[in-house]
């Protein structure tokens, strides 16, 4: 799995996950977001559009991100949740639990941030 970070005006940080997130690399996401928390980010978007597969370890990493954001009062949105990734999130009944937005525009609107 590849993790790419970009930001909008330095305020909203977007992590795009590409490939497969499983037992062998799920900790990469945990490490990345932990490092971002140290930097003091306030708004985080996780883009799952290019994520082709996720297993329970990956779900665990998303849960970690969610609980850490809540604890640290960081705004979070998962966007572009589709295909087999959506199926796993549906199966684990996390659809209503996770802050899922349709796309980046909707995520920014929830954060109250205007897209420049």
């Amino acid at each position: 799995m590849e993790i790419n970070e970009r930001s909008i005006s330095g305020a909203v940080h977007i992590l795009s996950l590409d490939g497969e997130m499983d037992l062998y690399n799920a900790t990469d996401l945990k490490d990345t977001v932990t490092e971002m928390f140290v930097r003091g980010i306030k708004h985080l978007v996780i883009d799952l559009e290019q994520l082709e597969y996720i297993d329970s370890s990956g779900i665990s990493a998303l849960l970690f991100t969610y609980t850490q954001c809540r604890t640290r009062s960081v705004d979070l949105a998962f966007i572009n949740v589709r295909g087999s990734v959506r199926r796993v999130i549906e199966l684990t009944s996390l659809i209503g639990f996770f802050p899922i937005a349709e796309n980046l525009t909707e995520a920014l609107s929830r954060f109250g941030v205007r897209q420049g």
Binding site: K30, S56, S57, I59, A61, L63, T67, T71, T92
Partner: peptide
């Protein structure tokens, strides 16, 4: 915190 969980 989800850190050691494995809901498989």
């Amino acid at each position: 915190d989800g850190s050691d969980s494995n809901p498989g």
